[in-house]
């Protein structure tokens, strides 16, 4: 069962394809044929974006059929006001605009919530874009989308994701976050945390709480948050994205 908003990729392929066959079928530089660099560069994107069959919006929007798409045009993703304005102003994702965006996201769309400092190397951008292009126009010939984050990779109990949070408590606790995290995103190492899916938010904070992620401030903050408090914060920051 795939969400309808995933577009063409939501159509399940008629048969599973082996990786080797995919390599033969795919066009140059696409996900199946890559010798490693584009795919390796894409690994950083995968922490926030899904692409492939059944891809959903996560911290970032899904990347299926991004080539040719108007910016901020997918339903169901809480785009930043800046990205919405860029889309309304006519920004469409092409080889050239994606290249400029990836080179310096916060110069190209100031106020974007994408927490990515940019990829300075033009050649690497080309390889990353070639890899990404494999997810555009491929219809159902896509490998399944991979999860952005799982509780298992940090040895977390999946039950932690089922705790329901109190938004009012979350709003109070969020005061401790917004001293450093801007609502509008950042390119300097303090990421936007607005509009994250609940799972991604809870797993990230639980990983800091258990020192499976290393940032000292985040370990300090998360270290004293209870599971219920983490759930409350997750719900608050998810809801924030729906505010005008």
């Amino acid at each position: 069962m795939f969400p309808s908003r995933a577009g063409p990729a939501a159509r399940a392929p008629s048969r599973p394809l082996a990786a080797g066959l995919l390599a033969l079928l795919s066009t140059a530089g696409a996900w199946g044929a890559d010798d490693g660099r584009g795919g390796a560069l894409y690994a950083e994107c995968k922490r926030c974006h899904q692409a492939g069959r059944g891809a959903e919006h996560r911290i970032g929007p899904h990347l299926n059929d991004v080539f040719g798409r108007r910016a901020a045009s997918l339903e169901g993703f809480p785009y930043s006001p800046a990205m919405k304005a860029a889309g309304a102003g006519g920004l469409t994702w092409t080889e050239a605009t994606l290249d400029a965006f990836l080179a310096d996201p916060h110069a190209f769309v100031p106020g974007s919530r994408m927490s990515y400092a940019g990829l300075a190397n033009r050649e690497e951008r080309g390889e990353l874009l070639a890899w990404l292009r494999g997810f555009s126009g491929a219809g159902s010939d896509l490998p399944p989308a991979e999860p952005t984050i799982t509780p298992e990779e940090y040895g977390l109990d999946p039950q932690l994701l089922t705790i329901s949070g109190d938004p009012e408590y979350g709003a109070y606790l969020a005061g401790e976050c917004t001293t450093c995290h801007r609502y509008d995103g950042s390119d300097r190492g303090i990421p936007s945390i607005t509009g994250w899916p609940l799972e991604d938010f809870v797993i990230a904070l639980q990983a800091y709480k258990r020192a499976k992620r290393t940032h000292p401030v985040m370990q300090l903050v998360a270290g004293r948050l209870s599971d219920e408090e983490i759930a409350a914060l997750a719900v608050h920051f998810r809801n924030l994205a729906d505010e005008p």
Partner: peptide
């Protein structure tokens, strides 16, 4: 360097807060 750049973002965030 990352710590310094973090401080720049902190300044922007706390100013807004």
């Amino acid at each position: 360097k990352a710590t310094y750049e973090e401080s720049l973002d902190w300044y922007a965030a706390i100013s807004g807060d």
